[in-house]
Design a protein around this nucleic acid. Structure first.
Lengths: 263, 263
DNA sequence: AACGACGTTCCCGACTAGGGAACACGGAGG
DNA sequence: CCTCCGTGTTCCCTAGTCGGGAACGTCGTT
């Protein structure tokens, strides 16, 4: 029971939706059916359902499917990423140009660091992650930042077995928890070769106006450019970036504490 | 056969998602179950599935659900509304202030005019529609604009019975089709009391750089402020607004060939 | 004209989704 | 401190639905 209690039909509908969303061109029923591994007929029914809800739209002439208007409408009501990514991206670009490393913005999830936006390094060999990807909590720098500065219940949910990605991945819950204390003290986390051999990451938290963690910035690079002991330049660039984003988040949100209205 | 071929489970999942998306505060399982009319247990399974896909997120402390990060990510890849609404809204605001009527932006769908954004009138009695609402093709001014200027297959899909909303609703397919010719000539459509008694609407199309219809602007008001023969001021304000939006759409999109459709 | 590829429709059986009730938990109130 | 709601979560069984597969209609191509 790796994935215990699902709603199978809803799952396939969402997989279809994701496929359409992340495709650059409109898709046909046959391609979709092949990619999600379901019969054409079933996929067609799902597309009909998604269309009834305005999540996808079918071009009346080519009969190909693409995203519908409701997606955009929903995003208007989704504050988590909206303001954050829009604020952060221009600042991230500056830091990328200064340091020459890939810069990644992610938000915390119950089981991962969810990648909202990435800027590739300007090095000849590109290193990066795709938006929409998920970084594990225990083996990525951004994940460990969320464990250290995020909700206290998050580290508690860490339970063996921790997946091993490389020989250097920390798979012992105890040692991961021990590292969190150090991360809190120094204000940043690293994960040398813990997700992928040859690759290191350096990450620091972003806080909102209430002092809650809102996301994290990660710098990604090969061990050649980003050592397990980050250089002062890199560390300074990262911390100035996260501080700047946190500051802008505060300004935007009225400043003081934010009471939630009664129903 | 009112709604022929559904995927029931996917449908409830999407209803749940919509409920969460359009709610201003995070929702609990019980409220959601009550609103969608499904057992709590089932709703919980759906929420789990939606969460696995990043569409919703559960607050670890309050255990309430709100929209997840993937929604925002998808909207980045959903050009239909994004550019259109962002371009149109500031211009719409000007026209609203000039005319004092509610201004509505919608995009065409296979069966309706889908409302992307609205600006309420500044009159003491507010008249308007909610974003996400759908206006019928045959009884709304914006719907008739889509029938007249949109894809030629759209009017063909008009089949009896046409739903009757008021005594003045056109329920005869033939007479609706006949009206389209006139709408094409004059470049705008009205729908006096066809959707709701006492309310009139005046709508005109927005075209993209390829000359295809991209949306429509509708002015909504009571029959007192918006007669079945619109005043020159109102007509001029509307047509200047749609022309301005169409022009900006062209500029943004390379703006090469611009075949101007029949005025 | 024959072909192939596509989206769509149809049908039937396996299995899943949903109702309902029970469970774990936490805060409010006695 | 105990009780009592209220919550979110888990469990179980069965009616109903989802998915596979094949057939259909319709394009554009050969």
């Amino acid at each position: 029971m790796e994935k215990s209690d699902h709603v199978r039909a809803a799952d396939t509908s969402l997989r279809i939706l994701q496929l359409i969303a992340f495709s650059d061109v409109p898709l046909g029923v046959t391609q979709i059916a092949a990619q999600v591994g379901t019969a054409k007929g079933a996929v067609h029914k799902h597309l009909r359902t998604l269309g009834d809800h305005g999540m996808v739209a079918q071009d009346p002439v080519t009969s190909l499917y693409s995203l519908g208007p409701k997606i955009w409408l929903m995003a208007q009501k989704a504050p988590p990423g909206r303001t954050l990514a829009e604020l952060a991206l221009p600042l991230m670009r500056v830091t990328r140009d200064e340091l020459g490393l890939a810069v990644v913005l992610s938000v915390p999830t119950a089981r991962s660091a969810y990648v909202l936006a990435t800027l590739s390094s300007n090095q000849p060999i590109e290193i990066g992650v795709r938006p929409g990807g998920e970084l594990s909590l225990h083996s990525s720098a951004q994940g460990k930042v969320f464990l250290a500065f995020g909700d206290p219940s998050l580290p508690e949910s860490l339970a063996p077995p921790l997946e091993r990605f490389t020989p250097k991945t920390q798979t012992d819950v105890g040692s991961v928890r021990a590292e969190l204390e150090q991360i809190r003290r120094q204000g940043y986390a690293t994960a040398p070769e813990e997700s992928l051999l040859g690759i290191n990451a350096l990450a620091a938290p972003i806080f909102d106006s209430r002092g809650q963690i809102a996301g994290a910035i990660g710098l990604i690079g090969s061990v050649q450019h980003l050592g397990s002991q980050p250089s002062d330049t890199q560390l300074d660039g990262l911390l100035r970036l996260t501080a700047a984003i946190s500051r802008r988040l505060d300004e935007g949100s009225g400043g003081v504490s934010k009471p939630s209205p009664a129903p």
